[in-house]
């Protein structure tokens, strides 16, 4: 479903501080699986997720999504692909302060402009799924860490993407909340979504929910 061929990504290319974050990764990621990318800081996990999720373009190499080459697409098409295929959960949650939990959940759908009632109903259903109905109108900065993460997951799912990308999702959570996240992950996996996550949290990496573990170091795959 996602095919990565000889992927390279350089930052500050041509400058004295040039840095190759990804150096020739090739992988095939199956639909409906939970794949964890692990490795120390600077190993290239986040960059790889950003490249797969169309948040950045590779310097060299190919990424194919359902057989279609997406590595050289212009920004507009990449954004449309990202909206349709990927939902993101960031390490810092990246919710917009001052807006309610519901408004944050609805934000990714604004450019698609669905009818408001329909959008709100979908957001409320997702908030209910993650036990956040009573916090729907609360501003996100008033929510606990676990609640903020659930809002972030609900936001990632508002456009009903088949692939969920989560970057270090448990880095800011305690053990209980991390287990809660894994339970949600299990639900999403059972619902048929593909999950790609990066982590170096043993609780996540040792979880039976993870179908595949890919170890990275210095921008290369060292174990699969």
């Amino acid at each position: 479903m996602i095919e990565i061929v000889d992927l390279h990504k350089a930052f500050n290319q041509g400058r004295p501080n040039e840095y190759w974050a990804i150096q020739g990764i090739s992988l095939a990621l199956e639909r409906g699986q939970v794949t964890a990318f692990m490795g120390p800081s600077g190993s290239g996990k986040t960059t790889l997720l950003a490249l797969i999720g169309c948040l950045a373009r590779p310097t060299r190499g190919r990424i194919r999504l359902n057989g279609e080459d997406i590595s050289g697409l212009p920004e507009r098409f990449l954004t449309a692909l990202r909206r349709r295929h990927f939902g993101f959960v960031f390490q810092q949650f990246n919710l917009i302060k001052g807006l309610s939990a519901r408004d944050n959940v609805m934000l990714p759908a604004y450019p698609l402009a669905p009818p408001y009632r329909q959008l709100r109903a979908r957001a409320d259903a997702l908030l209910a799924q993650f036990a956040l109905t009573h916090r729907a109108d609360a501003q996100v900065e008033w929510l606990s860490g676990g609640e903020q993460q659930r809002v972030a997951i609900a936001r990632a799912l508002i456009n009903d993407p088949p692939i969920l990308v989560a970057d270090e999702p448990t880095a800011n959570l305690d053990t209980a909340l991390s287990r809660e996240f894994l339970a949600i992950l299990g639900e999403l996996s059972r619902a048929g979504r593909t999950v790609l996550l990066s982590s170096h949290d043993p609780l996540v990496l040792e979880s039976p929910l993870i179908n595949r573990r890919v170890a990275l170091r210095d921008g290369r795959v060292v174990a699969d």
Binding site: L55, E75, R76, T79, R82, R83, F88, F90, N94, L95, I96, L107, P108, Y110, P111, R155, N159
Partner: peptide, 9 residues
């Protein structure tokens, strides 16, 4: 940055 990451052009 957040808006772009979540799918805004």
């Amino acid at each position: 940055g957040i808006l772009k990451a979540i799918g805004w052009e």
